[in-house]
Amino acid sequence: MCLAIPGKIVEIDKKNQIALVDYGDNTKRKANISLVDVKVGQYVLVHAGFAIQILDPKDAKETLELFKEMLSQEGI
């Protein structure tokens, strides 16, 4: 139930706190954005119809790079 899926905000209806979210593969769905302060073009994580957090597309790459560093520096 805590499953959440990333998507890109393509349209915002501020008054109703609703955004159109593009999940890729031609799937677009509405999501409630009352839990985040979000702009068009940003990526969000959507859970049960609500955007619950904003994502930074850089971070996935950084995670791997950082971890590689940890792994090579320290060994175990």
Binding site: M1, C2, L35, H47, A48, F50, I52
Partner: peptide
């Protein structure tokens, strides 16, 4: 309304 802290904010909203 079931769910942990991930879901509870949707109820709160």
């Amino acid at each position: 309304a079931v769910g942990f802290e991930t879901t509870a904010p949707t109820t709160a909203s």
